[in-house]
Amino acid sequence: MTFQWIQIPYALLTLFIILNYGMLMTALIQKIGARVGGRYGIPIWQNYIDLLKNIALRSKISHGVMFYLGPVFRLTGGIGLILFVPTIYGSVMHQNFSFAGDLILALYFVFFGTLGMALGAAESGHPHSAIGVSRGLSQVTAAELPLALGVFAISLQYQTLNITDIVAAQQGSIFNWTLFTNPLATVAAMFAFVGTMMRAPFDVVLAPQEIPIGPPTEYHSSYLALMQTNRVLYPIAKTVIYMNLFFGGATSWPEFFVKIFAIYMVSVFIGVVYPRFRVEQSIQFFLKWGLPVGVLAILMV
């Protein structure tokens, strides 16, 4: 596919839609959680207010260049993920910068934000950040392994590294989805999905009740605003990949919204059912259950 200038505003439009969707959806999910608990819950636009409040803070202090770059990297990870993954299949507008090897790039971006965050948080010098970073990195690394294996499995299956092609191969009927053609790879990848969504039971890294909130301990005002933006973008971006790879992609915005919501809810449901794992428990869990499934998936193909 050749590059055209018009793609840039189109991609930005996609970004904008996803950002707002993410803001509202995370608030909605919190609200659902509150309603389940018998509370009224936050207003649906609370995320916007918090964001604005953080940007409007008058003072901020920095701990050095890396501290500054941490949230930037993190946000780059989220945005990059969205920009290089086709959001809506078959739509010229929301095709973004998809190209032949974008699957590899996407995998890279999934990890990029975490790494950047690690460097930034370490610079802040707060012991809680350092602890949070080391916990986070080890957990995410363990959780990403099944995903990598699952992705290899399906790229072998479809003989391509282009996400668009993979989506194209899944069109037609629901039974063309990878979910049905290669269930093992899907299961392996779903391990990684719940593992990296930073929701219970795998949220020991960021949970406020644990060692005070981990990597972002020292972040505030605009830095925090950047991270908040990312926190709504990134899960959606990641869910988009999963949707494209395993659940047949989306051909229109309504389908996109519904599918993302459904896939996201998987991690929410698992989160409300299970108590929080400690880091070594979750690493063990991923290596013991996620990894064999991933290996099996490759062998099956």
């Binding site: 509150a34 018998g38 509370r39 009224y40 819950g41 936050i42 207003p43 972002p216 301990t217 020292e218």
Partner: peptide, 22 residues
């Protein structure tokens, strides 16, 4: 924080670090 009073609906939350609280 409990269902009876539920301060969250007024946009009030608790933060664990002074950096993020106001």
């Amino acid at each position: 924080m409990t269902p009876r009073f539920d301060a969250y609906r007024y946009g009030i939350q608790w933060r664990p670090t002074p950096r993020q609280a106001n």
